[in-house]
Amino acid sequence: MKEKQGHEICKVAELPVGERVIVEINGRSIGVFNVEGEFYALRNLCPHEGAELCKGTVTGMNLPSEVGEYNWVREGEILRCPWHAWEFDIKTGKSIFNPHKVRVACYDVEVEGAEEKAVESFKVGVNDDEMVVVYV
């Protein structure tokens, strides 16, 4: 299997918590999300009818519950497709209603640059050179 290549997307500072950026890598449209400071990447293609999934709303979800109970959880971790409103876990690409069969491809994301710039620069908050890198 071909080794995955790292692709620099943007500076960490350019992708704040709750935001996303959509990029094209090797002809594939991919959405990169910042969820509470962690980065995740999903294919921008809904497995249902082919919508641009990553343009959907970032939201939360209700857990399965007893009648009359509403347990709203995971605010900011759920992506809702702009067509048909299917919910996907941004962290895994798995759908909420059928995680084993319905899922969207996800990719590894790392933040690079901090280790070379030395811990000190991180400590003083100079992190402009930290890059979000997606492995495809």
Partner: peptide, 10 residues
């Protein structure tokens, strides 16, 4: 609308 269908996928 939110539940629209694609002619090539529906």
């Amino acid at each position: 609308h939110w539940d629209n269908d694609s002619p090539v996928r529906a």
